[in-house]
Design a protein around this nucleic acid. Sequence first.
RNA 1: GGAAGCUUAGCUCAGCUGGUUCAGAGCACCUCGUUUACACCGAGGGGGUCGGGGGUUCGAAUCCCUCAGCUUCCA
Length: 888
Amino acid sequence: MSLSTKYNPQETENKWYSYWMEKRFFHSEPDEREPYTIVIPPPNVTGVLHMGHMLNNTIQDVLIRKARMQGKNACWVPGTDHASIATEAKVVAMLKEKGINKKDIGREEFLKYAWEWKEKYGGIILEQLKKLGASCDWDRTRFTMEEDLSEAVIDSFIHLYKKGWIYRGIRMVNWDPAGKTAVSDEEVIRKEVNQKLYYIKYKIVNAEAGKSDHLVVATTRPETIMADAAICINPNDERFAHLKGKKVYVPLVNHEIPVIEDEYVDMEFGTGCLKVTPAHDLNDYELGVKHKLPATDILNDDGTLNELAVILVGEDRFVARKKIAKMLEEAGHLEKVEDYKSQVGFSERTDVPIEPKLSMQWFVKMKEMAQPALDDVLNGEVNLIPNKFENTYRHWMENVRDWNISRQLWWGQQIPAWYDDKGDWVVAKTKEEALEEFWKKKHLEDANTDKAGFLAQLAPFIKQDEDVMDTWFSSWLWPISVFDGFKNPDNKDFNYYYPTNDLVTAPEILFFWVARMIMAGREFTGKKPFTNVYLTGIVRDKLGRKMSKSLGNSPDPIGLIEQYGADGVRVGMLMSSPAGNDLMFDEAYCEQGRNFASKIWNAFRLVKGWEADTSLANPNEQAIAWFESRFNEALTEIEHNFKQYRLSEALMATYKLVWDDFCAWYLEMVKPAYQQPIDAATKAATVNFFEQILKLLHPFMPFITEELYHDEIFGERTAMDCCIVADYPVIGAINETLLKEAELVKGLISEIRNVRNSRQISPKESLELSIKVNSETNYTNWLANVYKLANVSKADFVSDKLVGAAAFMVGKDEFFIPLSQNVDVDAERERLTKELEYLQGFLKSVDAKLANERFVQNAKPEIIANERNKKADAESKIAIIQDSLAAL
RNA sequence: GGAAGCUUAGCUCAGCUGGUUCAGAGCACCUCGUUUACACCGAGGGGGUCGGGGGUUCGAAUCCCUCAGCUUCCA
């Protein structure tokens, strides 16, 4: 079977991915081997694959494939996340197009549509991941809203509630008027926005004669004046002493509100008079509580003004702002308007400005759970990679705030709280249990009540809480719930796979998700959920901008795979992505990856083409022994990099081993002359090296390696003998002397090529070499390679310099090449003089060091010995160069 | 406003607890080359006073201070 001259990724990728699936190589079952487990950060069901997923999942796949080859029972659990707000928004929009209103069809009907939508679109990302080569155990695919996982969510809610760590209360929440739901603090993105600062005049009730009859308040939100409960001044502000105890009229609506005093007011900002609107600002709310002010909420859930606003009822908050500014101006209440920049919160999901809103919500207390989760990271039970994130993590955990988990949505797990018609409530898993709870509660009040009658009477009035839980309240259980650790905590899978090993995710969700998973792990299982958290960087474009739809600067990942092959793209993604560093993505990296695949392919074609002749002796023992050592040396480095999760460096070390050492040096050393056969021993050794290299490359480039692994040069393979499950290479013996010698010989060959290049001598013209050995190096064994790689026809060892020949040094040894053309004596003298000057300067600095008493006293002995070596080395080289100069 | 981090070749980044000719890698660039594995290639080459300033030390890209610029997180 001959190999096509070009590597065709598409054909290979489909073929082998299907084969792997068919042979169930991705599937894992508990057995006696050591487990290696990763749970995928479940992508959003509304999403499509973007570059961030590509990076994230490439890393996970590299880790899982390597572990699998190293004999571990590797299990990568995939799945998706139901994404309450985003999905509900999509479904609402879809229904709207059909002319259907969510409220009209009701919860049950709506959820039917939502499930349909999820079935249709929810798996897109997972399908796309297959193109990348992701070796997930697809049989284990989970979804955060499937029955068992939902049950886990409900159970954990009840558990925490019983513990007193979940409570219900009226709080100022971040309201998303587009999504019509509260969102958590973490889902609010602050942006600097150009606004206007309106200076509004409030008329004073019974103003003192001789004093101004009004005061002025500066605000960015004139549309909320109808909700004003007071005007606040700083008690120390002498400008406003005359206002103490007064009342003012709210413009346009003429409510009377008091002037209150509080040191909270910044005398420098605005006018020094602050309007207090408890229902529409967090700080004002707190002031309101302190001064017992009423909180009038003038906004509807969708951000329009309600009846309590009295004027502009039904208008959107931003429309109302413009209109009221005009009305104030016309009524003479607007003193002036200034431009003003300030931070405004936007909803992460819908990108509309967040409205602070008072509402009844469910909260999880964070303090108790945060402590063990913080400890885990601080004492190294859980490693954050890179560890610079520990600071951020600690800061957040030490200042953590309670977690608002209710969302005013339908898509998600409904809160297991039940209300009766009187507003009493209980927490229970089912309606039946809720009734029981009510009974327990009421029974205490009246011991004579008849239970059956009580329940029958109550049942029709019981209603479950309308709200659902935050999606993160299900994903924080992910590492536990994917193994059914809630329903059946003693099951085989959970005992075997949990705690998982590595988690690969983005730093943006360190708090959202990672911190909370550690909390959940400790609280519900008593164990950490994972040991290592690899935080990837953000994929940016080459200008450093975040990739975004609106900028249109994100390449289509599937398009990239089609263009460069999955292996090429994987290499491209990893090439420049040290953990935690942002990745400045450039297609050129994928191109480099594709070129690498092509290089491997062509090297393979070379080896495959060799005719082995068993009658030939092996002339390549030296080269073979060298490459074996070099391979083991590189493998040591690669393993070291992997241990530290430096995947890009592990890849680079592999890349250089393959391209430079194997292709550029080793293959050139051993390859026979054109159309000549090769000896059987060299061919066997080379084929063996190639197999080792394929295995080494497999985690990075699974497809091309699998394809070549099955080539006939490796002999017959059984159906299950695949690269994906082949034994990963193990570090073997390293001959340091051989490696050192090889470096010298490579240097020698480069110098000869340089002599040729700089004098424009054709590579076809062979040269003669004389060697004057001043060191211990044994060049004899390497001469064959020098002949071949530098086109040298003859070499001899001499004890005197060759006059009139091109000369150079490698280490301490001198080499001479007689040339037909005359040596340019001047140029040679200049070159040698330069070298001499450099060495003399160097020697001077070394001498200075050694002459310095304090250096000799303070420095470590080995450092001093080293300096003495440097001195001796420089001196002998100087002597040689001086001789050469004299000989010119 | 508070906190953390970053600044090394044109670009993206390595350089561990200060000490070999330590200033590196990949890509890009320049010169030469169509020698049958590969032009998605080969051979060779140029390029940085390690952001500025100061200090500690026998010795600083590496430790300390300070200034400037950038990034992120939190208010």
